[in-house]
Amino acid sequence: MTLPLSSPASPRPATPPAPTAGGPAVTLHLSLTQLVMGRYRPRQRFDAAALDALARSLASHGVAQPLLVRPLEGGEPGEGRYEIVAGERRYLAAQQLGLTHLPAVVRRLSDEAALELSLVENLQREDLNELEQAEGVLRLLALRLGREVGGVRSLLYRMDNEAKHKVTQQVLGSEDARTVERVFAELGTLSWASFVSTRLPLFSLPPDVLEALRAGVLSAAGARLLGRLRDPADRAPLLAEVWDAPPGDAELRRRVLTVLGASRSQLPAAQPPAAQPGPPAARLTAWAHTLLGGRRWRSPARQARAQALLEELAQLLCAEEDDDAPVTP
């Protein structure tokens, strides 16, 4: 059922007392002046266009779902104040419309319960950016596991390395690992392995790139592109443009690749390994490290030439084996 909006011209009766600890939830019409934004929300930015659309919807259809709030201590005498646990966007849209009251479900919640409810409600929305989502998931996992966020990251990387058989299995199958799996199953957005490969690397980006991503002026794809520019002097001009007038990801990719190409052209040409005396196997090993460590295989011409040389080398090795074979009279 859609609840009616409260217009500035229709005052509400005094707010009844909040529910007692452990008692049932109570639905009230609260003044917007009694509400404060939640401390545990994963969303740090609110898109202006989306808020405009929500405000129009509220004006046309009313409030389809009340806010979830919890009472706060320390308010002014006779004035109950409430922290928003879920529904910040509805609150901001109501402010934009000039409304005075909103329906809200009031529940007594601990800090831990408020954090979990806020995270779950927000993480199931699709408009969080990847960094907000990653930070929210880590905070939810930290709450469930009783660990610091840094410890959660270490656990996830350990699980990933064990799943890839890079280290001895010690964590997979444990209660902590099962808790991680349950959390991702509840969220239903991506698996823990995908989270490790696509979200955790975001925290390794340079601080200036993370700042732009968190502010919403840069997409996650754009942040990964700019993160390829390790020199802050190379990033600074592009970041200045991003803050002023964000280019699309395709244009940003072109600009980043141009900067990377200019940087590489200024480097000295790679030199082949020194021709040292010794068995051919040792020299081949040195060549292999040089070739595999570079980016020389992107050119089709180089690939074709390398293939021809490898075939010639294979024939030579076979011929040497024939030379060593006993001669049949």
Rank of each mutant, 00 (worst) to 15 (best):
S194T: 15
L117N: 06
V120H: 07
V120W: 01
A163E: 13
G151L: 04
H101R: 05
G146S: 07
E135L: 11
S191E: 13
H101F: 06
E130F: 00
R139D: 01
V105S: 12
A114P: 05
R147I: 03
D127H: 10
L117C: 06
L187S: 12
T198F: 12
E121L: 06
Q124H: 12
V120L: 14
F203N: 05
G173V: 11
L187N: 11
F195W: 07
L172S: 13
G150V: 03
A193I: 07
V120M: 10
S194M: 11
E162G: 10
F203M: 09
L156R: 00
G136W: 04
S174D: 11
L172W: 05
V106H: 03
E132Q: 13
L202N: 02
E162D: 11
E135S: 07
L172P: 03
L187Y: 08
L131S: 06
Y91W: 15
V137P: 01
T168R: 14
Q170Y: 04
L143C: 13
L156I: 06
E121Y: 11
Q95L: 15
L97A: 10
A163M: 09
L190Q: 14
T179W: 02
A185G: 10
Y82A: 04
N122Q: 15
L115Q: 14
L202K: 03
E116F: 00
L102S: 03
Q96T: 12
K164W: 08
L102M: 10
K164T: 07
A94V: 11
S154G: 10
Q133N: 05
L141T: 02
A177E: 11
R178Q: 15
D127E: 13
R153N: 00
N161P: 00
L202S: 01
Y82H: 09
V196F: 02
A94K: 08
G136D: 04
Q95V: 09
S191I: 05
G173E: 12
S154C: 01
